[in-house]
Amino acid sequence: MAHLSQDLAVIADMVLPGTRVLDVGCGDGALLEHLARTKNVDGRGVELSQAGVNACVARGLSVVQGDADSDLADYPTGAFDYVILGQTIQATRYPRTVLQQMVRIGRHGIVSLPNFAHWRMRTSLLGRGRMPVTRALPNAWYDTPNIHMCSVRDFSELAQELKLTIDRVVSLRGGKPHAVKPFSISANLFAEQAIFLLRGA
C-alpha cells in the first residue's frame, strides 16, 4: 500500500474506527483505502480527475466523479460521520458554501490546508516580491489549482464566523504534527500545513 502523506496520516488519526466517511477530493483513494483497512471505515469519495476516479474504482472504492462546489448539495443531511476535505478547500470556488455543506452532510468535518502565512511565504513575498513557490505549494501563480489561499488564522476566523466548533487543530511543522490553538500566533507563522477537526452548530 502507498505510504500516506503526512497530512493524510494526521487526518486518518482523527477518524474513529467503524465510521462512515466521505472524502471530498479523494485523489487516488490512498486515504480511503487506508481507513477501510486499518479502521474498518465505510468510505465514499468524490474526485474531479478521471485518473483519480479510475485509480479508486480499480481499488474497489466507491467514488463519484464530481466536484465539491456543485455536487455536495446532492448528499443527504447527516449521511456521514466525517466529511474530509484534504488539501481541497483552497481549490474550491465557494469555500464558505463547501464548508457549510461539509458540516451538513457529516457530523464532523476534517479540513487540511496549506498555511499561506508560513514564514517562508512571508519572506518570499516581502523579500523577493514574488508569489511564493514552496514544497507545499509548488505551482506558479498562473497554473495553480489553489484559487482561495488562506492562513491558519484566516481559516479559524471563517470557522468562527460560520459558527463551527473547532475541536482540534494540528499543525505540520518540519513534517511533524503538533497540537496547536486555532488563533496561535506561532502556529500561523510556523505551520506549513494545518488540519482542523470541526463540527457544525
Binding site: V57, S62, V63, V64, Q65, G66, D74, Y75, P76
Partner: peptide, 11 residues
C-alpha cells in the same frame, strides 16, 4: 447515495 449504496460514477 441517499440509499447509502456503494456507488461510483464516472463521466
Amino acid at each position: 447515495n441517499a440509499a447509502a449504496a456503494n456507488v461510483s460514477f464516472v463521466e
